[in-house]
Design a protein around this nucleic acid. Structure first.
Lengths: 109, 109
DNA sequence: TTGACATGTGACCAAATGGTCACCTATCTT
DNA sequence: AAGATAGGTGACCATTTGGTCACATGTCAA
């Protein structure tokens, strides 16, 4: 439980940076990229990218595998899914429900 | 469009802090609370709470109304809904789809 | 109208964050 | 074996962030 709470915090903090969201986007369009490949997608040196990838990895949003001297990065959507299910949906769904109610009321008249 | 992008960033950054998520939770359970009331829900002085509420308000997650000398704070779920629709669902849904596929394959055999 | 109450402002500080660099190790290629 | 290639570490720095406080303004109640 504590683990889950800490996890939520790590995920939200990881998502709070535009560069890190861009990296996730890059992995979304093409999974399994190396550090060098990702470096080209973001206006920053290799070292900055490494730090961001480390944050993403510690949040569980990215998992890696080594292939020779390369390190491949893969998107892991599970944490985002958890955030969605246990947090976002709580706030997002009542709004959808309100719209549904409104629609129903409009259709009555 | 630029406005939307800046907005996404503000919302993600606002959600990246545990105290601010706690404040949203407090407003979720009871909407329209004053600063003084919210101060009691979080281990921090009034000034810290004010700063956090300002961040939430600038992200559009909280809207306010003055009543005499009091300031009432209301939860606005729309930004979270937008984050969900335009960002989270992109990552969360493929996973659900994969599960659905798996379920279908299992049911075939 | 005076005092208590609710909120606001700006300065200030410590810690966290985002980014770079010099240098290092490991792996591939020829 | 030697150079080139891919990645890793730790120090370092500027900026942002989270939090407090002294002080100030606006509003209510007796």
């Amino acid at each position: 439980m504590v683990t889950y709470l800490r996890g939520v915090d790590l995920v939200f903090k990881a998502l709070a940076d535009q560069t890190r969201r861009d990296l996730l986007d890059a992995l979304f369009t093409e999974d399994g990229q190396t550090l060098s490949a990702l470096e080209g997608r973001v206006p920053m040196t290799r070292f900055g990218v490494m730090k961001h990838l480390k944050v993403l990895e510690e949040a569980g949003l990215v998992v890696t595998r080594k292939r020779g001297r390369e390190k491949l990065h893969f998107l892991n959507p599970v944490p985002i899914r958890l955030i969605h299910d246990r947090w976002v949906s709580k706030y997002a769904e009542p709004w959808a429900a309100a719209l549904t109610d409104l629609k129903a009321q409009l259709e009555e008249s």
